[in-house]
Simulated assay, not measured.
Amino acid sequence: MTSAVVAKGVGPLLRGWRVRRRLSQLELALRADSSARHISFVETGRSRPSEAMLLRLAEHLEVPVRERNALLLAAGYAPRYAETPLDDPALGALRAGIEQLLAGYEPYPALVVDGGYDVVAANRGIAMLLDGLPGHLLDPPLNAMRITLHPEGLAPRIRNLREWRGHLLAQMERQIALARSPALRELYDEVAAYPPPRARAGDGRPGEEGPGEEDPPSPYAAFALPLRIEHGGQVLSFVSSISTFNTPMDVTVAELAIETLLPADPATVKHLRRLSG
């Protein structure tokens, strides 16, 4: 967080979060056991909230952990939440649990990303999907968004790229709206500007560049948008599920997301089990 943001004080920051959550001052006051008058005084700088009240407001406004530290700093308090490196011994149990979870999900793909979509852990199912990609995309830090949407990455293999790309970009836009992250905005601008892969032969759209002819929707994935991706001469279909940690007290942990790819049809299950031996 920049010193300019801190200098504005906590009032405008709180008001911004309240407006973003589409709550009136009265609604927020009722949730936080306060009064609309007090909320108004805090937002206009006429009153300084206590640390406990500020954290209570942040909780009811569902402010991300990193941004809660920003609110505390702006109000003149010390940050409450540490940002522990993932390789720190203090997070050893967390790393072990993540590795066990990813291994237990095999042969299906699963990975863990941080707040910038850098991959911090992945299982052999992910390695299978990335097989054959150019080395410059696989150099660390491996970025999930970049490797998925890059024209030399997975994009040419994704049979419903138009839909999947729209889903990923919308996901990033929602995250950017919650976090003032120049790095995340830079990543979004990069991947949104990638040229689409050239149309495959038989696409039926001469002169137009874009993904090849898309497959008809799978009846097995009617409950959610599937990722349909080519591998080994077969089109695999997955539904993505993303999990985060409940009530995190550390910025690093709060920004971790575990993504598992659930097979969306029997053919995908059969293919992955055959490859796993």
Score class of each variant (00 low, 15 high):
Ala70Tyr: 01
Arg80Gln: 12
Val269Cys: 11
Asp189Trp: 11
Arg18Gln: 08
Ala82Lys: 12
Gln171Thr: 14
Leu14Asp: 02
Ala29Ser: 11
Leu57Asn: 06
Gln100Arg: 11
Tyr81Gly: 10
Gly232Val: 01
Arg22Thr: 12
Ser40Val: 08
Ala110Ile: 13
Pro211Met: 07
Gly16Asn: 06
Arg18Val: 10
Ile147Arg: 00
Pro107His: 05
Pro197Lys: 07
His167Tyr: 15
Met172Glu: 11
Val10Gly: 02
Ala78Ser: 15
Arg20Met: 04
Asp87Ala: 15
Gly166Asp: 12
Met53Ser: 15
Arg20His: 13
Ala93Gln: 14
Ser276Leu: 03
Ala75Arg: 06
Arg21Gly: 01
Glu59Asn: 08
Leu13Cys: 03
Pro226Cys: 12
Leu55Phe: 09
Met1Gly: 13
Leu161Asp: 09
Ser218Lys: 02
Asn143Ser: 07
Asp33Ala: 14
Ala32Phe: 00
Met1His: 03
Thr2Asn: 12
Arg20Leu: 01
Lys270Phe: 06
Val253Leu: 02
Gly115Thr: 06
Val239Lys: 02
Lys270Leu: 13
Leu86Thr: 05
Leu26Phe: 05
Pro217Phe: 05
Pro140His: 04
Ala36His: 06
Thr244Asn: 07
Gly92Gln: 09
Ala122Thr: 11
Arg95Glu: 01
His136Met: 00
His271Arg: 12
Arg22Gln: 15
Val120Lys: 15
Ala90Trp: 01
Gly210Ile: 08
Ser240Asn: 09
Asp33Lys: 15
Leu72Lys: 08
Leu262Val: 15
Met172Trp: 03
His231Asn: 04
Ala52Ser: 15
Ala7Asp: 09
Glu255Cys: 00
Ala224Pro: 03
Asn69His: 07
Thr84Trp: 08
Gly135Asp: 14
Leu225Cys: 05
His271Gln: 04
Ala222Phe: 06
Met1Ile: 10
Leu168Gln: 13
Arg200Met: 12
Asn123Gly: 01
Val251Ile: 11
Val235Pro: 01
Gly233Trp: 14
Pro64Ile: 02
His150Gly: 04
Lys270Asp: 15
Glu62Thr: 06
Gly202Asn: 06
Asp33Tyr: 08
Met172Thr: 14
Pro197Ser: 08
Glu51Thr: 11
Glu99Gln: 14
Ser240Trp: 09
Val253Thr: 10
Val5Lys: 04
Ala82Gly: 00
Val269Asp: 14
Leu272Asn: 02
Arg274Trp: 03
Arg185Asp: 12
Pro226Ser: 10
Ala96Asp: 08
Pro12Leu: 08
Pro107Asp: 10
Ala122Glu: 15
Val112Tyr: 05
Val191Pro: 01
Arg200Ile: 03
Gly207Tyr: 13
Gly76Ala: 07
Gln171Trp: 03
Leu227Ser: 00
Ala224Gly: 07
Leu133Trp: 04
Leu102Met: 03
Phe41Ser: 09
